[in-house]
Simulated assay, not measured.
Amino acid sequence: MLTLPYTSFRNNMKENMRRLHDDADVMLVTNRDPADNIVVMSQDDYESLMETLRVQSNPDLHRRVLAGMRQSAEGAEEEYDEL
């Protein structure tokens, strides 16, 4: 995770945001009061993180994803006709 003071982030916002997007990285933007620190990431990375949390928090869905990963690793994928 990159760390940058708020003033530096603000002064170079366009470059910082492009870097975060292009590198799929996150940045901790710090302030004098640590309670005011923020984390910045691309929307795609945020949505991916939220979907991962959704899958992880649903035990049935999580089991199904793990079973599918095992099948794929064993070369036992099943093909389905598109609806």
Rank of each mutant, 00 (worst) to 15 (best):
P5R: 02
P5T: 03
P5A: 03
Y6H: 09
R10D: 07
N11P: 00
N11V: 05
N12M: 07
N12I: 00
K14Q: 09
K14V: 10
K14G: 04
K14N: 07
E15L: 14
E15G: 05
E15S: 06
N16E: 11
N16M: 12
M17L: 14
M17C: 11
R18S: 06
R18V: 15
R18M: 08
R19E: 07
H21E: 15
D22F: 02
D22K: 05
D23A: 09
A24W: 06
D25S: 14
D25W: 02
V26K: 15
L28D: 04
V29K: 03
V29N: 00
N31L: 08
N31C: 11
D33Y: 13
A35N: 15
A35C: 09
D36C: 14
N37E: 02
N37M: 03
I38Q: 11
I38P: 02
V39M: 08
V39P: 01
V39C: 13
V40R: 00
V40W: 03
V40M: 01
V40I: 15
M41L: 14
S42I: 11
Q43K: 09
D44G: 01
D44C: 14
Y46S: 06
Y46C: 10
Y46G: 05
E47N: 13
S48G: 13
S48D: 09
S48T: 11
L49E: 10
L49N: 11
M50E: 08
E51L: 10
T52H: 14
R54P: 04
R54S: 12
R54M: 03
R54A: 12
V55S: 14
Q56C: 13
Q56H: 15
Q56A: 12
Q56E: 15
S57I: 00
S57Y: 00
P59R: 08
L61A: 01
H62Y: 10
V65G: 05
A67G: 06
A67L: 09
Q71K: 07
Q71F: 12
Q71A: 12
S72Q: 09
A73H: 05
A73G: 07
E74Y: 00
E74G: 05
G75C: 00
G75I: 00
E77W: 04
E77L: 11
E78N: 01
E79C: 02
E79Q: 11
Y80E: 01
E82D: 10
E82Y: 10
L83E: 04
